[in-house]
């Protein structure tokens, strides 16, 4: 049985694509067969973050419209054998995605033995975002500890609990998780940023991961190598923990507190 995970947020620029790429890599690295699909029709970007932009021949809409087979459109990752990318189309036709078309592609992926299908949602609450979440079993809601992002996440949670197949069928609904990105323990400590607990309390959801603010995220997108693959990076470890939690392991949160300075560092202001 394939599990469909939508990565969504409402607000743009909070790290949906970065998160989709890293979660997909992390799951695939643990031996799962994973497809990651870009639902941002017209504004394709997952291919760049995954570093396969020059290998896109056919896209999601091509498959839906029958211009090619699903196999032809799936781009096999060069780093991890069990990871495949399905790029968004660059068409400006907003109606290119249809519910039946999306369902057909997801069903075919499931029949092909994929374990996980990660749907990278576009920002907003329009058709692309709706279709990205509609068939989901689980949702990872990416949120920055910042007022507009938290509010938009709550809108998205409302949609997840009403405008999805699982919600309509009434069998438990979509499993929802929060994933905080751009978290700065230092600013939380000084009272300039809401804490994990604050966001959790407002949105009333469990947290599947907290990714610290990190320079490595930009370098990763510059290079087209998902940040989770950078072994030196705290962000990578945070994403890997999130993958483990998605797979049911329980792991304490890391990188949510500022490393404590030693006595001498405090006295003499080092570090």
């Amino acid at each position: 049985m394939a599990e469909i995970i939508v990565v969504t947020s409402g607000k743009g620029g909070v790290g949906k694509t970065t998160t989709s790429a890293s979660l997909a890599c992390g799951l695939a690295r643990r031996g799962k067969k994973v497809a990651v699909i870009d639902f941002d029709i017209g504004l394709r970007n997952l291919d760049l973050i995954m570093g396969c932009e020059r290998r896109v021949v056919y896209d999601f809409v091509n498959v839906i419209q029958g211009d090619c087979t699903l196999k032809q459109a799936l781009i096999k990752d060069k780093r991890i054998d069990t990871l495949f990318v399905l790029a968004a189309s660059q068409t400006r036709d907003k109606d290119a995605l249809t519910e039946e078309g999306v369902k057909r592609v997801l069903d075919e992926l499931a029949a092909d033995g994929f374990d996980y299908i990660v749907c990278d949602s576009p920002a907003g609450i329009e058709k692309g975002a709706h279709l990205a979440m509609y068939f989901a079993d689980r949702a990872v809601v990416v949120v920055n500890p910042e007022v507009s992002s938290v509010r938009d996440s709550d809108r998205i949670l409302g949609l997840l609990s009403s405008k999805t197949q699982k919600a309509e069928q009434g069998n438990g609904g979509v499993k929802e998780h929060l994933l905080l990105t751009r978290y700065s323990p230092k600013r939380v400590a000084t009272g300039e940023m809401m804490s994990v607990e604050d966001v959790k309390e407002i949105l009333g959801l469990d947290v599947v991961g907290v990714v610290p603010e990190s320079m490595d995220v930009l370098s990763a997108s510059n290079a087209g190598i998902p940040v989770i693959l950078n072994e030196q990076s705290d962000a990578a470890h945070a994403y890997d923990d999130a993958v483990a939690r998605l797979l049911g392991e329980s792991k304490p949160l890391r990188f949510t507190e500022e490393p404590k300075k030693g006595f001498f560092a405090r006295m003499f202001g080092g570090g």
């Binding site: 007022v147 938290v150 009272g191 940023m193 809401m194 407002i202």
Partner: peptide, 15 residues
Amino acid sequence: PTSAQVAKERLRIIV
């Protein structure tokens, strides 16, 4: 109150 506390309170109400 810190700015984070202000943010939290505003969000609590609007949400």
